[in-house]
Simulated assay, not measured.
Amino acid sequence: MNTVNSTNYKFPNQVSVYKGKVREVYRLENDQVIMIATDRLSAFDVVMPKGIPYKGQILNQIATKMMDATKDIVPNWLEATPDPNVAVGQLCQPFKVEMVIRGYLAGHAAREYKAGKRELCGVALPEGLKENDKLPTPIITPATKAEMGEHDEDISRENILARGIVSEEDYKVLEDYTYKLFKRGSEIAAERGLILVDTKYEFGKNANGEIVLIDEIHTPDSSRYFYAEGYEERQEKGESQKQLSKEFVRQWLISKGFQGKEGQQLPEMTDEYINSISERYIELYENITGETFDKAEIDNIENRIQNNVLAYLNK
């Protein structure tokens, strides 16, 4: 299976490279940034040993489309996409928090609620909720931005301000942008017959000191979607919701006794299962965008990426 799991480029005027869980970020002398979406799969903050075919292309292209669809309400870092796996933009200083916003009690929030917690990141949750119920109003539950191999951690607004991670003035902008993006994302999802359940946004400051949206947006890695059709009926019957997110991977790992905790053994993913994940990601792409997925050439992905990026830089 042809996948891009790691890169080692030396672009003209390259200054540094940063490797995150999924993306690799090359910085050039003019503070231009080349962000490559690899085919790595991360769950429970652990990177799986095998890549997923087309995953990087899917994430990059969804994020590109969603940034284009929201740039009228929130500025973003993106300038160009010279390759299906590549985004290019200006260097930003990222805030060290992820702005997680939830419209429904699902995933991590549902697991915490089931464990008896009625407060998440300083936000009170009402009694009597069932998993996947709609919340009275969307809530922001921030997380610290972890380095590779570390876990993101829940953190409250009050703690962020008290520790000086973000200034109060900047945090108000982050909150405002988060609510606006979630509203727009929910509207886009509704047009596709989907419900945007929860998602996360990352922000940074550009050279002008402007706060802008960075990284990915409304992708199946950063977001959870339900199918709108039959949602109410499934809730009434206490059935699981039909999901569009990588939650299916998390649930598979949980069923195999793995949640990223110390001492737990990562289960083996067969080629057959990896191909099924790839097919699910393609399904996610087509449902989220409403477009047919056009598979890029993968005979030699690393050469393709290098050639396309060099052609862009040489313009």
Rank of each mutant, 00 (worst) to 15 (best):
T3R: 02
N8K: 06
R27E: 15
M35S: 13
D39N: 11
A43N: 10
V47W: 14
M48D: 07
P49L: 11
P53I: 14
I58G: 07
L59N: 10
N60K: 03
Q61K: 08
M67A: 05
T70N: 09
A80H: 07
T81G: 00
T81N: 13
N85F: 07
A87K: 12
V88D: 07
G89I: 10
P94Q: 05
V97C: 01
E98H: 00
E98M: 00
I101R: 11
R102I: 04
R102N: 04
A106G: 04
G107A: 12
A110M: 06
E112L: 10
Y113L: 06
K114A: 13
A115C: 07
A115T: 11
G116Q: 11
C121T: 09
V123H: 10
E127P: 00
G128N: 08
L129C: 04
L129T: 07
N132M: 06
P136W: 02
K145G: 03
E147F: 03
E150D: 12
H151M: 03
D154F: 15
D154Y: 15
I155T: 08
E158A: 14
R163A: 08
V166A: 13
Y171K: 03
L174H: 03
F182M: 05
R184Q: 12
G185E: 14
E187A: 12
R192T: 11
G193P: 04
L194F: 05
L194E: 06
I195C: 02
V197Y: 00
N206L: 04
E210K: 15
E210N: 13
I211S: 06
V212M: 12
S223L: 00
R224C: 02
Y225Q: 06
F226W: 15
E229R: 13
Y231P: 02
E232N: 12
Q235L: 15
G238I: 04
E239A: 07
Q241D: 08
S245G: 08
W252M: 14
L253E: 13
G260S: 12
Q264I: 03
P267Q: 10
E268S: 08
D271S: 09
E272L: 07
S276W: 08
Y285T: 07
E286V: 02
N287G: 14
G290H: 06
G290E: 13
E291Y: 11
A296I: 07
I298C: 11
I298V: 08
I301K: 10
E302C: 00
N303E: 15
V309M: 06
Y312E: 08
